[in-house]
Structure formats: C-alpha cells, structure tokens
Amino acid sequence: MNGISVRTATLLALAVIILLAPVLFPSSFYYRVGALIFINGLAAMGLVVLVGYAGQVSLGHAGFSGIGAYACALGPVHLGLPPLVCVALGAAVSGLLAFLVGRPILRLKAHYLAVATLGLGILIYMVINNEGWLTGGPDGMTVPSLGVRSLLKGYGIKVTSSEMWYWISGVVLLAGAFVALNLHNSPAGRALRSLHDSEVAASTIGIDVARMKLTAFVISAVYASVAGSQVALMNRFVTPDVAGFMHSVELLTMTVLGGAASVLGAVVGATILTALPQVLTVFEDFEHVLLGLIMMLVMIFLREGLVPSLARRMRRSAP
C-alpha cells in the first residue's frame, strides 16, 4: 500500500458514504444528524493534522470554531458582508490568531501545551460570552441565511434546510479530506509528521520545528473555523457553547477515537460522538456516564484509535 492508494481509497469511501447514507434515512431529521457529523468530522480532520501528523495536542480548538461561527453571525450585521465572505473572514481571523499565539504556545510540550491551548479556548469563549453588547452573550444571536435555498427555489428546486446542509457539509468534508490527505505524504506533511516522533531528529535534518508546528496549528484552526461557520449557518443561530471547553474536548476525542493520524478515523470518531447523544436520548440521564465510559474504554483497549486498530486486526486475520 502506498500513499496514493490510501488517499484514493479514503476519498472514495467518503464519497460513497455521503452519497449512499441518505438511502437509509427515514426522515429529514437524519439529514441534520448527518450534516452535524460531517461538520464535526471536518473540525476533527483539522486536529488530525495537528495531533495525528504533528503530534501536538489542543484542548482549545472549539475557540476557533467559535470565531468561525460568530464571524457568520456578526459579519452580515456589522460589516454588511455576504455569508460566504464571512466564512472566509472567520477562517482568516482564526488562522491569524493561531499564527500570532501559536509560536509561544507551541514551545510548550504535552500537558503544558494542553493547558495553554485550553486557556486560549476558554479566553475566546469568555470574550464571546461576556461581550453581550456585540454577541448577545449567553443567549446567543441569530445568523443570517446563506441564501442558497431561496436561490434554488428560483430554479424550482425545493429542499429542506437539513437536506441542503447535508450536501453542503458533505462536499466541504470531501474537500477537507482531499487537502488533509494531500498533505499526508507531501514534503510539508512529512516534515510535520517527523515532529511527531522526534523533534530533535527533525531539527537535525533541517526542519524548523517551531515553524512546522505553527503551520499545523494554523491549518487546524482554519478547519475548526470553517466547521464553526457551517454550524452557525445551518442552525441560523449561535450560542457561546460552540466555543466551550466541552466542545474542544469532544473534537479532540473524535480525532483520537477514530485514530489520530487517520482522516477516515476523524469521520468515524465524529460519527460516534455526534450520533451517540442522539441515540442515548433514550437513556437520557446516562448519556454522560456512557460517553465517559466509551472515552476511557477506547483509549485503554484500542489505543491507536478505532480505524488503525481495526485495520491492523483485519490485516492480521487476512491469509
């Protein structure tokens, strides 16, 4: 297996899943869950680049999702920008912020890095939560429509909002996967992945460790931001929770659950963590108990994450 076939196989698998899953959907509600999975999967893919490739941890990436989300809420109202431009603006602001704070933060390692990114995420959350005059505070604010549905209506095509967002987020997810997979076995991707195993060895072959870490941080911030923008535009509403600590934890868990360095794993992780609460509403009160248990069990017994662990098992059982 070389890099090209893994790339093609992953893209094909994703495309097939996105195209065929609706066959199984009994109602429009499932389109919404599907869209949420794709959106979370996108943010998790960004963390694949940061955590899986470059070996850095972040407990604050929901902060960048928050920036992307509120860019779409504030941009049209205060700057008169069309929603799509706001997505780009949010991504640019997130990328710039990641670039500015990344260098000092990424000097830290392991647990210290986790705390610093956690602090960064919480600070972003607090600004959104406290500056009520701008953001509506804890009550949140409405987000203008993307305008695609009324455009389609003009052509006589009628889709529900959930259906439309299913397809939009599916295409964006594919684009995100394409980019992350391109990176994997590219010159820049190899430089990133070399940090994962040994920063010292990486530096002795000429890799500017700080610069490459920063690159991964910025890329993952942009992914998280675009994901946040999509959530805001889909829900037509946004609250500070999108930037909250628990959301950061969810994103990191999705990434690692599926297999930190696996693009497909990010989608698998996102599926489990997004669909689970929907399924568990039956158990209601036990949702957290089960979520916590799953997080612990997977990390203890399938340390590499679901996709790599299963792939290994299949390879072993193959003749």
Partner: peptide, 21 residues
C-alpha cells in the same frame, strides 16, 4: 499523553454523569 488526557477527561465526564444519576 493525548490518550491519557482523554482517559482522565472521560473519567471526569463519567463521574459527573454518575453523580447526576
């Protein structure tokens, strides 16, 4: 380290959920 972080965060969510129940 990332696995350990997720395990203890999982434990935290688990204990919180258990207390709620």
């Amino acid at each position: 380290v990332v696995s350990l972080i997720i395990i203890t965060i999982g434990a935290s969510i688990f204990l919180r959920g258990l207390a709620q129940v």
